[in-house]
Simulated scan of single mutants.
Amino acid sequence: MVSLLDQRAIVTAGASGIGRVVARTLHSAGAKVAVCDISEAALQSFGEENPDITAYQCDVRDAAAVTAVSEEMISLLNGVDILVNNAGIAGPTKNVEDITPAQWDETVVVNLNAQFYFCRTVIPHLKRQKSGSIINLSSAAGRLGFPNRTPYAAAKWGVIGFTQSLAMELGEFNIRVNSVLPGSVSGDRMNRVIAERAKLLGISEEAAWADELKNISMHKMIDPQEIADLIAFVCSSSGRSVSGQSLGICGNTEVIR
């Protein structure tokens, strides 16, 4: 167990999936946490189960909405020490020539631009106190090619460049910036991705799952709790000199097909 006592954390897309587990883990470690999410149903469920964590609705595609919600969360928390940029979507599973500009733009906006929107609001607060930790969610697709998922891969590679540049820019203010690169994570989104891949390739979902796991050295899926535990560690005093890193948690994904 790590301690995040007296830390104040914002988790984007924090009402479901990986974000939900991250928010609960940070809170369990002692942090005061606020989350935002686009889904009203997820927010309601999250609020009922986690009454000590305040949740806000926000469409991360809207820069003005992100600024407003970020400032509201920071006011509620009486400051901010940790930002977890978790919001993301899978995007289309198609050959590149079949992807529409709208599908490309949405995938990049949610997976990359939204991280910029949150950072530009939160960073001035971190600079004033000369401390903080930013975690940007990338993916194993942020270091490997990903055929038929080009907008997703392009955005996740962009997250790496954004992270490493921010780490250089903010280091003198004692602000640490790191990327976390999950592999194949158990959950609804991965189930949908596998179903779309099976459809595209004309194979069964069972065959698509087998193909997914054979390219992972440890031949296993990642549990969201593993990702949350890594984030809590990096944001704690135990990770006080970890910055500018791309931290893979993927069972060593060798290739993505």
Rank of each mutant, 00 (worst) to 15 (best):
E169H: 03
R149H: 06
I203M: 09
A195H: 09
I123S: 08
K156T: 06
A167F: 12
N136K: 01
V185M: 08
Y152W: 05
I160G: 01
F146W: 13
H125A: 02
A153T: 08
A208M: 12
Q129K: 02
L170I: 03
I160E: 06
I175C: 03
P147G: 12
A198V: 14
E169D: 15
A155C: 01
F162Y: 06
A141K: 03
R149G: 07
A154N: 07
G171N: 04
A198W: 10
S186F: 05
G145N: 14
F173D: 13
S179K: 03
K156W: 02
V193P: 01
R189P: 00
E169T: 11
A155T: 05
H125F: 14
I135H: 04
A155W: 05
V180S: 01
E205T: 04
V193S: 11
A228R: 09
A228C: 04
K127M: 15
W157N: 12
A153L: 03
G183P: 01
N136D: 08
N174V: 11
A195T: 13
D229H: 08
G132Q: 07
R197M: 13
P151C: 03
E196A: 14
P151K: 04
W209S: 01
M190Y: 10
A207K: 10
A153R: 01
G187C: 10
N191F: 13
Q164G: 07
N191D: 15
A228D: 05
E196G: 01
Q129Y: 07
N178Y: 06
I227A: 11
D223A: 12
G187K: 02
K214W: 00
F146A: 12
K214N: 09
